[in-house]
Amino acid sequence: MLRFLLRRTLGSLVILVLLTVVAFLLFFGMPRDPALLMCGKTCTPDALANIHRTLGIDKSIPEQFWIFLQGLVAGRDDFAQGPCPAPCFGYSYHTNEQVWSTLMDRLPLTVSLALGATVVFLFVGLGTGMLAAWRRGTLIDKSFTAGSMVLSSMQIYFLGPLALAVLVYQTHLFDEPRYTELTKDPVAWFTGLMIPWVVLSTIFAAQYTRMARSSMIEQLQEEHIRTARAKGMSRRYVFFRYAWRGSLIPIVTILGIDLSSMLGGAIITEYTFGLPGLGHLAVESVQFSDLPLLLGVMLFAAAVILLCNIVVDACYAFIDPRVRLS
């Protein structure tokens, strides 16, 4: 198991390094003049020259990349803005702040959003899915299946503004979603993020309802379930102790993918509700053509995804004893 995890970690590191190369080439190698892209529509020659100097654009691309890599590992202090400790992604062109500290500033919001929504959609999605499987073929099952079909076809960019318009702007039942730190004011943290959680989890929950239902039904047809029922165990016990555990594997797989993509920034949700998380940061940095920031967000999100994949693999071993043995 340890060897397996070690191998996965090494493989992920290789992918991360490759991704750094590709992203760096994409942002700094492909445009004819990245400074021009960065400078935007109202570019003065002065600003252009400034960007040229700070970018170190006079050096060749491999050289630039080597300096960037060195900065990631050991930090740099050749920036006009001041020293930049490792991991150094450089300084943002728009705000002149360190990219890494900006990322860390935005991270708590994204984590709060992702974890809160995960709790809601796991609870709702798995609950309805298992209920549908338990009552298979009844009206409950059919209405849950149809409802999840429609809800999973919903888009956040429709549901989000709709929820905002109805709950906030038209009826004034809630305040506009906003982020308060959990440690500062837990109540404001909860009420401020409630609408985004519900909207985000509505779309995900539907998927888990379908997943949990089909996976439970599949498990209930397995032979060990029949054996357990035949030797006199109650339906309830078999359902929750035997089938439930077997149905977890596909759910954990999907959960890993969803969680990692949300931790890398739930872009559309954050943008819709104006919540300044990682995803919002990505959109901002595109709007201001802030390449160092964009590179930072992208590599950070990729690292999170790879980390989540490893965690999911480790989780399999806890759920499925067969994985542990092999």
Binding site: I15, M30, A282, A301
Partner: peptide, 28 residues
Amino acid sequence: IDFLLAIPAQLFFIASMPVVVSLFVSPR
């Protein structure tokens, strides 16, 4: 395929759109 699957897709889309556009036209 393994490598491309590790790239955060939506983020990559919004990040690379301006770059790809700048290949064809000057940002000005």
